[in-house]
Design a protein around this nucleic acid. Structure first.
Length: 571
DNA sequence: TGGCAATACTG
DNA sequence: CAGTAT
DNA sequence: GCCA
């Protein structure tokens, strides 16, 4: 395996965070949206589901998980806790590999269509019509939570509207989704539908990955299939705490080892029950192996527990959650005795209005920075003596809360549309793909990464800056953390990788957007501009999660060589 | 035992 | 150059 | 911390 090519690397994006908390059946994942905004009423509030991911492709899994989270009581991590098991498997033998038979017989086991149509219908449909496995017909009918649990469409329906009637967005319960994660959005609106060159469109028909060839034993992540939600999530969560701790304490090498091991475990297709199983997983050596052993015995890892409960870890984690504060600064701040965000605000001299505590909505609209629109002060070299007086950290402190919120796919897509609309006005004919975690099928993202190009290579240069300027003028980009210029490197040996322009910004949906509600949450938005020749390579590169190992990305000139791999990138 | 991806940008 | 970010 |  060739890796280690001297060349250019796409940098990746997307932090590999975990889906957070979660005990049994989580819905809506972590951050309990204070029900302030899109007050979505669940259509199947009494039913919890379990999704067997086998035989489903990433987009379908994402779709079903999203539906499950949004409209059921919760998506269970364990079939035993669910009321309904959803699977595309039709053979008993195969199902037994994922769900113990005695469990399966005590539930309703149905096809994905049951979920889709029940939601479209507004309440649970008879499971008997969606039996996934013949042998389970009777038990499925018997265990179906049907209508009996829900007083179908009653008084309460005032708040309840069917998702299908939702004003914006049309695509929701579509069956043959056109791989929502893939289709590049074009800027073609009504007037001049500029044709997009075929080499910038996704392959049609889409490439299909032979999952059988992807084994978890592969050393390279790009050769492993990986479920969106791994069966060993609890174990992974424990190990990740140790990983984080190592990183926070500056033991990067160790952290890297944990990261690789975790990535490998995530690719392991079934629940790990014995040490023997783990030993086969790459990047699991003596130490981690012993940790896993402890986990198998006790369901937890004492070292992780200890770390998690330590004040040290909590403080460092909190501090690094501020954009711009990394492990080193966090340790230094902690060493100064600081412990809380309040401490940081005081330390960095945030003006604390009297209001602050009570009225949350203090209309803290960011004032445009005086020195141009690049939102950052320079000037003020006084308190910089200790290297920390960064006034910029104050801004980050204000952004922290918003930026820590996850972004639902709906909103990711809306952001993509909005940005595309602006770009279209600026330079018609552009093509884009939303990459990062979104493209990997994650139901929620930490940020939004979009890769752009234009069929005419000449039109790309400088576009990034222009787009950011426009977005900023229109109030959508509130901050620019970073704007990379166009380096006209020597046109020779340098591949076109370094000619990427990118900008890391903070974005907020405009009032005109259907998803704009009250005070919209500010989001991290990364814009990447690539010349057409490397467009797909860039797309791939930005979809590979950390820790990544490069593997023949870009082997084909048009970058489509990687297309087939990217649809099953590990999460 | 050496090495772990590689770079861009800021202060 | 160190630190943070992707 | 794991691999070559």
């Amino acid at each position: 395996m060739p890796f280690k090519r001297p060349a250019p690397t796409p940098t990746q994006s997307n932090s590999g965070s975990e889906s957070p908390s979660g005990s049994k059946c989580s819905s809506e994942s972590s951050s309990p949206p204070p029900a302030k905004r899109p007050k979505m009423t669940k259509l199947l509030p009494e039913i919890s589901v379990y999704l067997v991911q086998a035989k489903l492709d990433a987009p379908a899994i994402a779709e079903l998980l999203t539906l499950g989270e949004r409209h059921t009581k919760g998506v269970c991590k364990d079939a035993a806790h669910a009321d309904v098991i959803i699977t595309a498997i039709s053979m008993r033998r195969r199902l037994e590999r994922h769900v113990p038979w005695n469990i399966a017989t005590s539930k309703a086991v149905v096809t994905p269509q049951w979920l889709r149509e029940s939601i479209a219908h507004g309440s649970a449909l008879p499971c008997g019509d969606y039996v996934a496995i013949e042998d389970l017909h009777d038990s499925t009918v018997q265990n179906c939570p049907d209508c009996k649990c829900k007083p179908c469409a009653c008084s309460d329906s005032s708040t309840g509207f069917s998702s299908t009637s939702s004003p914006r967005r049309s695509a929701q319960g579509q069956d043959h989704l056109t791989s929502p994660t893939t289709s590049p959005t074009t800027t073609s609106n009504k007037p001049a539908p500029i044709p997009i060159p075929a080499n910038l469109l996704p392959p049609d028909p889409p490439n299909v990955t032979n999952l059988a060839k992807l084994s978890y034993t592969s050393r390279y992540a790009c050769q492993r299939a990986s479920p969106l939600v791994c069966p060993n999530q609890d174990l992974v969560r424990e190990l990740d705490i140790i990983r984080q701790s190592r990183a926070l304490e500056g033991e990067e090498r160790s952290a890297l080892s944990y990261a690789r091991a975790i990535s490998a475990i995530k690719a392991y297709p079934e629940k790990i029950r014995s040490l023997k199983q783990v030993q086969k997983v790459p990047y699991i050596g003596v130490k981690i192996s012993s940790l896993v052993e402890e986990f198998l015995d006790s369901g937890q890892i004492s070292e992780a527990q200890k770390i998690k409960s330590s004040e040290r870890f909590q403080t460092l984690s909190l501090f690094t959650s501020v954009y711009g504060i990394g492990p080193t600064a966090a340790r230094r701040l902690a060493a100064l005795g600081l412990r809380s965000l309040d401490d940081l605000e005081i330390y960095y001299g945030v003006e604390r209005g009297a209001v602050e505590q009570n009225s949350q909505i203090v209309e803290v609209e960011e004032k445009p920075r005086q020195s141009g629109w690049k939102g950052r002060d320079k000037g003020r070299g006084k308190d910089d003596a200790d290297g920390l007086g960064d006034s910029w950290i104050r801004v980050a402190l204000g952004l922290r809360e918003d930026l820590s919120k996850k972004i639902p796919r709906d909103e990711v897509e809306e952001m993509g549309r909005v940005v595309m609309r602006e770009l279209d006005a600026l330079e018609p004919g552009c093509v884009s793909t939303i990459v990062g975690g979104y493209r990997r099928g994650k139901p929620e993202s930490n940020d939004v990464d979009i890769v752009f190009t234009h069929p005419d290579a000449g039109k790309v240069k400088g576009l990034c800056k222009r787009l950011v300027r426009r977005l900023h003028e229109r109030g959508m980009v509130t901050h620019v953390m970073h704007l990379s210029g166009f380096h006209g490197h020597d046109p020779l040996r340098t591949t076109h990788w370094d000619s990427l322009e990118k900008s890391l910004t903070v974005f907020v949906l405009p009032p005109s957007s259907p998803l704009h509600a009250g005070v919209p949450v500010r989001r991290r938005l990364d814009l990447i501009f690539a010349p057409p020749e490397v467009y797909w390579t860039a797309v791939i590169g930005w979809c590979v999660p950390y820790p990544f190992v490069l593997c023949e990305i870009g082997e084909r000139a048009d970058g489509r060589g990687g297309q087939e791999r990217v649809d099953h990138v590990p999460a």
